[in-house]
Write a protein that binds this DNA or RNA. Structure first.
Lengths: 215, 215
DNA sequence: GGTTTGCTGGACTATCTCGTCCACTTCAGG
DNA sequence: CCTGAAGTGGACGAGATAGTCCAGCAAACC
């Protein structure tokens, strides 16, 4: 994945233009994350980013292109986060545990949901043509997990009976579902339980006593 | 829970009126399920239910009350479905397996997502005051699972180390997350993997060899 | 330094959607 | 019947919002 939206902007931008575009994008992402796609309208975005109405059109000809750019932006952040050294490519049970702990500990996100998941479910039924874009992001995400799990299997850290593809789906789904429930309940418990149960399940495949006991 | 919206309609309705109201509600639920809350507007609903604009106002003074009624309606269906004899109160691993199989086998739902989950995430960030209503439904749903799991534990069918509350959250989250991913990918695999992994995890607590082996 | 290109501002319009209004019809009960 | 309440139809109004238009400004490039 590279920025497929960025590449479809043939007009050259000066440094100043690029800066303005980035500012719009950043504020759009924040607003959409906090208030949803629907509530993020021209007026809000104008005052938040400090730009005029025509600039929105100038850099993003319509709302769909803006949403697509925001999806790209959020996707980049998520993929980068999961590829960071912190999780070492998800090649150990501990890495998955750290990952779960991170979201349980971080206070805010559960109030607004997953930056991509809640965006996705808000617009997946609309006529915005963002289906493929979203599908690709979730595939990438799943693949990060799956590749980690396959590596663990090759390294003998988890049993050969484990199904990396299945477990990868389980982790992403546990996160998305847990976020939705936490968001609705305004309580982190559903997310915590869901993520920890997923890690617990992974642990049942662990081959070293250390990992298998740690629950 | 009883129909909290129904009870807040003080005006008496004749049989005919009741029928019209039910027809509006049914079509609204279908439209919202298929196209989302946003896209379900007066005009669409009018032609779908074959009523005039003023009737919508007559039976549902504003859109929020309509959405609340639809949430109630969907919640009833879901709770009834989960309480049906089919699943015997979720007091065995097999019941959970049947439950998972049902959604994996049923073709359509994954295309439009969960009738409540996708509705929830679409409107949870709006100013519609449906937060508490939704939260209660998901609690009920979770409690159906939790009570089944607690019964299983009392009956000695699963280990005492199992945490019914945690596992209940896991099941609901696995379903919601799996549905979202399936909906985006237009593929049932994520839902299947997520649900089956959840059932597999439950099975690791099973005390009878039959259940524990069946994976 | 001048010209061309990109950048910015803000008013304006077309459109959509919720909800209202009022006239008319059907139905229930005395 | 007759009367009033409930049900119905369709046009209309108010408000919001995405996107347009055009004029003025800044900056790059020759």
């Amino acid at each position: 994945m590279d920025g497929s939206v960025r590449s479809q902007a043939p007009q050259k931008l000066t440094d100043k233009g690029e800066a303005t575009r980035a500012r719009i994008l950043r504020h759009a992402a924040e607003l959409i994350y906090a208030k949803g796609v629907r509530a993020t309208n021209n007026e809000l975005l104008r005052s938040a980013a400090g730009v005029s109405g025509s600039q929105l059109t100038h850099y993003f000809p319509n709302k769909e292109s803006l949403v697509l750019a925001v999806i790209d932006w959020q996707a980049d952040r998520i993929v980068q986060f999961h590829r960071s050294e912190r999780f070492a490519g998800f090649d150990s049970v501990d890495a998955f545990q750290d990952w779960a702990d991170f979201y349980v500990a971080s206070g805010r996100p559960f109030e607004d949901g997953c930056s991509l998941g809640s965006l996705a479910s808000e617009i997946v039924k609309t006529d915005l043509d963002v289906h493929d874009q979203l599908a690709r992001v979730f595939e990438q995400w799943r693949d990060i997990f799956r590749e980690g799990l396959e590596r663990m299997q090759r390294l003998g850290r988890i049993d050969s009976s484990a199904d990396p593809a299945q477990l990868a789906h389980m982790f992403v789904a546990a996160y998305q579902g847990g976020m939705l429930l936490a968001q609705v309940a305004r309580d982190i418990a559903p997310l915590r339980d869901s993520l920890y149960a997923a890690v617990d399940h992974l642990r049942t495949f662990a081959t070293t006593p250390d990992d298998a006991d740690a629950s």
